[in-house]
Design a protein around this nucleic acid. Structure first.
Lengths: 148, 148
DNA sequence: TTACACCCTGGACTATGGTGCAGGGTCATG
DNA sequence: CATGACCCTGCACCATAGTCCAGGGTGTAA
């Protein structure tokens, strides 16, 4: 039979055994069956599901979102799956935009810093430390704090 | 005197009182002095430092990195401050690049998904779930998992 | 003096995504 | 049957950045 123990499954998917058990605790991946001893047994479907989880994580989905995606895929509601992916895309684009602003702020400060001399002449320290208009060149977007 | 209690300081900087105490525990911000009762007292320097911390966070620095930045600024080693900022800039740029790959992967899948019909026809589910070449259109960069 | 806002410490708890360990039981090979 | 690899459960722990609470003490003004 092409059924796998937890160790073989983990090796095939490139994750740790503990991670597989963690996913099970999190309601993401249940074994196909159990031996009378309690040993978990997995089939090819479980391997595919585990790979799904890893790939979705690489796309920036959280485990909670992946759980929803898996539930959706069981209901074969393709429209909702697509909408979820679209929402995620918008989210990723917002994060990119926020990071662009961070990059501009940093680049501006680095360009203005002589790289030597007294700390009082360093715009990086000035801009961050000042309470006056010196800080106005920094991005101020609220969502930057929400960078998960 | 223009010295502040912890509540006034927190209000001026737009953070919570607990957060100020948390920063103190983390070695980021010590009070200027204490009353005999133990009450913390802060001067304008501490307010500036607290604002520094918040702005640096908005630039994507972690508290650990901010602690290093603050230590550096005390040593007035401007060159090292600049190098730290440059390292952070490279880090931000790598995160942007990783998110770009995520975006391309998602956009490709969304474009190919009909948005209706059977789940078997949904490339989002297919690409994620398959173990064959279907997954090859997805980004595979290892640093994506390391998205802090 | 009383009222009330403010402050103290220490510890528990939140969410996320795991990792590690103790103390056992089981499976397969020689 | 012995050995070693594998597996079980349950629990504690990691980092990050806080948040909240209990059970007190203090500062100030009417």
């Amino acid at each position: 039979m092409d059924s796998l123990g937890i160790g073989a499954l983990a090796r095939k998917a490139g994750v740790r055994i503990d991670t597989v058990r963690y996913y099970e605790r999190s309601g993401l991946l249940a074994p196909k069956s159990r031996l009378p001893s309690g040993y978990r047994r997995y089939g090819p479907g479980e391997l595919a599901r585990l790979r799904f989880i890893r790939r979705a994580q690489a796309l920036g989905f959280s485990l909670r979102e992946i759980r929803e995606l898996l539930a959706l895929s069981k209901g074969r509601d393709v429209a909702r799956v697509k909408r979820t992916a679209q929402t995620k895309l918008a989210d990723v684009e917002a994060r990119i935009a926020a990071l662009h602003r961070v990059r501009e702020g940093l680049a501006t400060l680095i360009a203005a810093c002589p790289g030597h001399g007294d700390a009082a002449d360093c715009p990086i320290l000035q801009a961050l430390g000042g309470e006056g208009p010196g800080a106005s060149q920094l991005p101020h977007s609220p969502e930057l704090g929400a960078q998960r």
